[in-house]
C-alpha cells in the first residue's frame, strides 16, 4: 500500500545580492509523503516548477555537510529533515539560508569566513619531538584513547553550529563552535605535539567568547556537542595555564555588552590583549594528565585553576538571570 501524500507549502528565501534589491519569499506547493526530506521537496521544486532556485546539496544522506539551511528558523540539514513533522508543527515550511554567512544566492551562503576561522585553529597534526611517529607502522592507540575524541570525528562541517552561534555573529575573531570542537580533537590526540601551545593560544584568541548557550549542541545534526568540548577546552586551558586575566575579563565584558546592548550582530568587542610570554615552563603537567588519564584531571577532583573557572562561570550565569 502506497503511503498517502500531503500538500507541502514551502516559503523559500530568494535573493541574489547585486541583482535583487531586497530578498523575497517565494511560495511553492508540492505533493509528497510526510517522511520525504525537505531537500527532496526543494529538488522537486527545481525539477518541476522552478529550475532557478539555488541551493547546495550532494550526498542526500547527511554526510557531506552541504545542505545546512534554516528550516522554520532552525539550522538543520535539509536532507534529513522530514516535511511531515514541520508541517504539523508550523503549518508550512519556511526555508532560509544559514545565518552568520553572507548570501551568495537564495539558500547558498559564502562559507569563506567559516573556513577561514576553521583554519585559524591550525587544523592539522603537529609533530611531537618527544614522541615521533613509529617508522613503518601505525601509532598504538587504545580504544579508550579513541573514546577521548568523543563525537568530534563525526563532524561534517555543515556549519549549522556556526549559523546558530551568537558569539560568531558578535566577534569575527571567535573561531566558532565547529573550529573549537576541531581544536579539541587535536588537543586530545596523543599523536599531536602542539597541544600546550594550542591551549595557550586559544585562551588568548577567543575561547572565552563562548557564552555557553549550547545552541551549537542543539543544532548539531551529528551530535558532536561542541559546547561540551568547549567546556573541556576551558578546563584544560586553565589546567595548563590558569585563567588568564585578559581572557576572563574579556568573557565577562562580552557578556555585559550582550546584556546591555541587545544588539548582538552589530556589536564589536574591544580586543583584550594578552601577553603570551612567560608560561612555557609549567604547562606540560596538566595536559599530559588529561590526555592519558582523563578521570584524574577532570571534575570532581579539584585541579588548579578550577576555582577561578567556577567563579567566571558563576559571574556569567548571574548575568544570565537578570
Amino acid at each position: 500500500m502506497a503511503e498517502a501524500t500531503v500538500s507541502v507549502p514551502l516559503e523559500v528565501y530568494r535573493f541574489q545580492p547585486g541583482r535583487d534589491r531586497v530578498p523575497r519569499y517565494q511560495r511553492y506547493t508540492v505533493e509528497l509523503t510526510p517522511h520525504t526530506p525537505v531537500l527532496s521537496a526543494l529538488l522537486r521544486v527545481r525539477a518541476e516548477i522552478d529550475p532557478t532556485l539555488s541551493l547546495r546539496y550532494s550526498c542526500r544522506s547527511a554526510i557531506c555537510g552541504s545542505c545546512a539551511m534554516q528550516i522554520n528558523s532552525k539550522s538543520r540539514l535539509a536532507c534529513e529533515t522530514p516535511v511531515g513533522p514541520e508541517i504539523e508543527r508550523h503549518g508550512r515550511i519556511v526555508v532560509e539560508p544559514m545565518a552568520n554567512q553572507p548570501v551568495v544566492r537564495d539558500l547558498v551562503v559564502n562559507q569563506k569566513p567559516f573556513w577561514d576561522r576553521y583554519e585559524s585553529i591550525e587544523p592539522h597534526l603537529k609533530p611531537d619531538p618527544d614522541h615521533p611517529m613509529p617508522v613503518g607502522r601505525p601509532t598504538s592507540m587504545s580504544p579508550q584513547e579513541v573514546e577521548r575524541f568523543h563525537d568530534t570525528p563525526r563532524c561534517i562541517a555543515c556549519a549549522s553550529c556556526y549559523s546558530a552561534c551568537p558569539a560568531v555573529g558578535a566577534d569575527p575573531e571567535f573561531p566558532g563552535p565547529m573550529a573549537l570542537a576541531k581544536l579539541y580533537r587535536f588537543v586530545v590526540d596523543p599523536r599531536d605535539g602542539g597541544h600546550q601551545d594550542r591551549l595557550v593560544r586559544i585562551q588568548a584568541s577567543g575561547l572565552w567568547l563562548c557564552l555557553r548557550c549550547h545552541l551549537c549542541t542543539d543544532s548539531c545534526p551529528k551530535n558532536v556537542r561542541p559546547s561540551e568540548r568547549i567546556r573541556d577546552l576551558k578546563e584544560m586551558a586553565i589546567a595548563v595555564q590558569g585563567a588568564t586575566e585578559a581572557g576572563s575579563r574579556h568573557a565577562v565584558g562580552f557578556k555585559e555588552n550582550l546584556k546591555g546592548a541587545g544588539l548582538l550582530n552589530e556589536m564589536r568587542l574591544a580586543r583584550a590583549t594578552l601577553g603570551l610570554g612567560g608560561f612555557a615552563g609549567q604547562l606540560g603537567q596538566g595536559i599530559r594528565l588529561w590526555r592519558k588519564k582523563p578521570e584524574v584531571a577532570r571534575r570532581p577532583h579539584p585541579i588548579e585553576g578550577m576555582a577561578e573557572l567556577d567563579q567566571i562561570y558563576a559571574a556569567l550565569d548571574k548575568g544570565d538571570e537578570k
Binding site: S58, C59, C64, G65, I156
Partner: peptide, 10 residues
C-alpha cells in the same frame, strides 16, 4: 564541491 564535501566522505 568543497573538498570536505566530496563523495569519498560517504
Amino acid at each position: 564541491l568543497h573538498p570536505l564535501r566530496s563523495h569519498s566522505g560517504a
